[in-house]
Design a protein around this nucleic acid. Structure first.
Length: 602
DNA sequence: CTAGGGTTAG
């Protein structure tokens, strides 16, 4: 027993077991307890071997039993440890503090809240209510089930018997429950914070969409002098990815390099996801090819990344490679694959992979899968086949699917059907303005102006909720946010001038703006006053102002790009000799030399 | 003689 535990392999442990048998020492409770304690370390190892050892012990003492409980807790059937616990009690062996930490661990892992509550009773009965380890295990149990009131109760019962682990378990519980402000409060109150405290705070922000706060918090963490670890950096990569902040993501990447952290699967996957979501799909590919090891999620991220960039064929090629390597796709893998088909208009392939998913892999299609298929078929003009998919669904369809059909009706000129679906959708959700916009647009295409006015009036009267359009651009070490209209940015005068320059130069190049707002083809932003300048145009104008000539302009926007802005952006890349990458609400557009990577299909 | 808290993706 000289080697540290974590350096001992399963086969070495088995050798030790063999020698114990040869020396006829098998059956000794303390010795076998040690053996079990080694077996408990191997992650999710099956418990049958451990159990066969435990069974040879004539009179198992609490030490040996604790370690067997621990083996169960680490296995795939953690709740088995409770069965053993009851036999321990039957044999009149008194459990100790170790027994309860292992038992509670088992309950947390096996989602046995009811069982955990019973164990909690035994904790009190046997007098371990003030043991820090036991209390932490209890708080962890309630935290992992989002029972924050119970966690808090345990915490409040003896507030002095706690350490940083106690506080961290509390943070995690409220974080999981989405109570970010409580996490913040506890984080401020706690007497000392370690890396895990910071990580939990960061994850609370990222998981609940408070991405700006996460960036701020990470800055404070660095100022406090704490060295971030793998979990910190993976979380921050996720924040950078969600916000599409390439410069920030790159700075995290350089921290990873400077800390000499190994390229683990987690780090690698998070990095390639970050690059993909920041528009650098080639960088993602490079990373992917150079990763020493990958797992299914790595492939998922890469396939989804390629799909979001409209590289449908490449995504499918990668998926075929995945299958050739003998890997087993998950439901998410097929979300990526079907998305790839839908973004690239690959109808035949889409049908093929949808069938493969259900027939060859027995994966039940979820709403996302149906969404891809309906979108794919609808956009390709196969509106009735899209409807058939919805009608044959095994689950009840989300209205979003009908909204896709509605959109297809508008694009492919099916006004009567569109009118029916549009009215039905408005009935279902009168507060969402997107449906009114689509319906009005369909009437406009049919030149039914009275209907256009009627629908728009209805929308105004009902005070529908609308999502304001915004665009982000990272420049000069800051994030600049633009909303439709202008005047809020400190350089708004220059931006205004730049917009005029753009207009003049595009006009000289022959661009004719789409004058009638009701004729606007696509656009969730139609609902915004059409006189206002869409947010991405402000961001592009600003980008032209502040970035060096010839450099690429990267924009993120929350809604989908409207047809008009899409046309203008194409022209700008030609007239100004710039590359512009826009991540909109549904995908990436790489604009270059007057063309877009989506080939106007999105 | 044995123990604990936090990881990403659509």
């Amino acid at each position: 027993m000289i080697l540290p535990r974590n350096l001992i392999s399963l086969s070495q442990t088995k050798q030790a077991h063999a020698r114990i048998i040869v020396s006829s020492l098998a059956g000794k409770a303390s010795l076998m307890g040690h053996l079990l304690s080694f077996l408990a370390i191997f992650p999710s190892s099956p418990f049958d071997y451990s159990l066969s050892i435990y069974r040879t012990i004539k009179n198992p003492n609490v030490f040996a039993s604790n370690n067997m409980i621990r083996c169960f807790a680490k296995s795939d059937s953690p709740l088995q440890s409770l069965v053993l616990y009851s036999s321990v009690l039957r044999n009149c062996v008194r459990p100790n503090n170790y027994s309860f930490t292992f038992l509670l661990q088992a309950c947390s892992k096996g989602l046995g809240l009811d069982e955990g509550v019973q164990v909690h009773g035994h904790v009190l009965k046997f007098g371990f209510g003030e043991d820090v380890y036991v209390r932490n295990a209890l708080i962890h149990l309630y935290s992992s089930c989002c029972r924050t009131e119970s966690s808090k109760q345990v915490f409040d019962e003896s507030p002095h018997h706690c350490d940083v682990v106690t506080w961290n378990a509390m943070l995690a519980g409220f974080a999981r429950d989405g109570q970010v402000s409580v996490v913040e409060k506890l984080f401020d109150e706690m007497p000392g914070r370690d890396v895990i405290s910071w990580n939990t705070m960061l994850m609370a922000y990222v998981h609940n969409g408070n991405l700006g706060e996460a960036l701020e918090c990470f800055k404070r963490m660095r100022e406090s002098g704490l060295v971030p670890d793998e979990a910190t950096l993976v979380t921050m990569l996720s924040a950078s990815a969600q916000l599409s902040l390439l410069e920030h993501g790159r700075s995290i990447h350089s921290i990873i390099d400077s800390l000499n952290l190994p390229m683990t699967i987690s780090i690698g996957t998070a990095l390639l996801d970050m690059y993909a979501k920041c528009g650098c799909i080639e960088q993602s590919r490079l990373l992917f090819e150079n990763m020493p090891r990958r797992e299914v999620s790595t492939w998922n991220v890469m396939i989804c990344g390629l799909a979001s960039h409209g590289l449908g064929k490449d995504a499918l090629t990668l998926f075929e490679r995945f299958l050739n390597e003998g890997l087993h796709p998950m439901n998410v893998t097929f979300v990526g694959v079907l998305n790839a088909c839908s973004r690239a208009g690959l109808v035949k392939e889409g049908r093929h992979y949808f069938q493969m998913m259900t027939d060859s892999y027995g994966i039940e299609p979820e709403m996302e899968h149906y969404g891809c298929m309906v979108d794919l078929l609808g956009r390709a003009g196969l509106v009735f086949e899209a409807i058939k998919v919805i009608e044959n669904m095994a689950i009840s369809p989300d209205p979003v699917l009908w909204a896709m059909v509605l959109c297809a009706c508008r694009i492919h000129g099916l006004p009567e059907l569109g009118e029916k679906i549009g009215n039905r959708l408005i009935e279902l959700d009168p507060t969402y303005d997107g449906h009114y916009v689509q319906l009005a647009s369909i009437y406009a295409n049919s030149r039914k102006w009275e209907d256009v006015v009627r629908v728009r009036r209805l929308m105004a009267e009902r005070n529908t909720s609308k999502v304001a359009g915004w665009s982000l651009i990272e420049a000069q070490g800051k994030v600049h946010r633009f909303v439709a209209g202008h005047g809020e940015h400190e350089q708004s005068l220059e931006i205004q001038k730049m917009l005029e320059i753009i207009e003049t130069r595009l006009a000289a190049a022959g661009y004719v703006p789409n004058v009638s707002p009701v004729l606007h083809d696509i656009g969730e932003e139609e609902k915004e006053n059409a006189i206002k300048v869409h947010s991405e145009r402000l961001a592009i104008a600003f980008g032209l102002l502040v970035t060096g000539p010839g450099s690429c302009i990267r924009i993120v926007k929350n809604l989908r790009v409207c047809w008009d802005c899409h046309e203008v952006t194409k022209m700008i890349t030609r007239v100004f000799g710039r590359e512009i990458i826009v991540r909109d609400g549904s995908r990436f557009h790489h604009f270059k030399e007057g063309k877009c990577s989506c080939l106007d299909y999105w």
